[in-house]
């Protein structure tokens, strides 16, 4: 109705063409890493809150408060990493890199290999425990970095080598 008022018609929506999912999931160990990280972070948060509450002495800490907090953390640990794992995907083709990340808010990113500026491989302390690495691909746009979190370390090495080789093959400053 709005469209007809403006005199502009939407493109035919008979069979909407959508993006298919990127081919590869991240390593299943990533899910474990996210769960452990969430658990540790949640425990630390509750601990700090407890300490503050006891030190300030303004609020009387009751058992049900702690129970609610613990339940919230456990719920988060049970749902979010799993959800994230279901969403996170990546793909590299002959011409482009793609990622899909997030859980509540999701983001798909596509960048052509010809516009790659840097390929960065990072291993956090926690990621190293799980044998994982993060590969970040940047373009000339500050809004366009593609991050693949939770890749198997060896796979990450191969991916970096491949992406670097392909980016090198392109002339110009890729802006």
């Amino acid at each position: 109705m709005l469209a007809s008022v403006a005199g502009v018609i939407h493109p035919p929506a008979a069979d909407p063409v959508l993006l298919r999912e990127p081919r590869h999931r991240v390593s299943p160990r990533a899910r474990l890493m996210w769960q452990v990280t969430a658990l540790v972070e949640g425990a630390v948060t509750i601990g700090v809150l407890l300490l503050v509450a006891l030190a300030v002495d303004a609020v009387e800490v009751r058992w049900w408060m702690i129970a609610v907090a613990v339940a919230a953390v456990l719920g988060w640990v049970a749902v979010v990493p799993q959800w994230r794992y279901a969403v996170h995907r990546w793909e590299v083709t002959a011409t482009a890199v793609r990622t899909q990340t997030g859980w509540w808010a999701r983001e798909q990113r596509i960048a052509p290999l010809s516009r790659i500026q840097t390929v960065d491989r990072a291993e956090g302390a926690v990621a190293r425990l799980f044998g994982l690495a993060t590969v970040t691909v940047t373009t000339a746009s500050a809004a366009g970095a593609l991050e693949i979190d939770g890749l198997d370390r060896r796979l990450a090495d191969d991916l970096v080598a491949e992406l670097t080789a392909r980016a090198d093959a392109v002339e110009g400053d890729a802006t």
Partner: peptide, 13 residues
């Protein structure tokens, strides 16, 4: 145009 980002929150989806 270098690349594309397609963002959606749960409400948007």
């Amino acid at each position: 145009v270098i690349g594309w980002n397609v963002r959606s929150t749960w409400f948007q989806r």
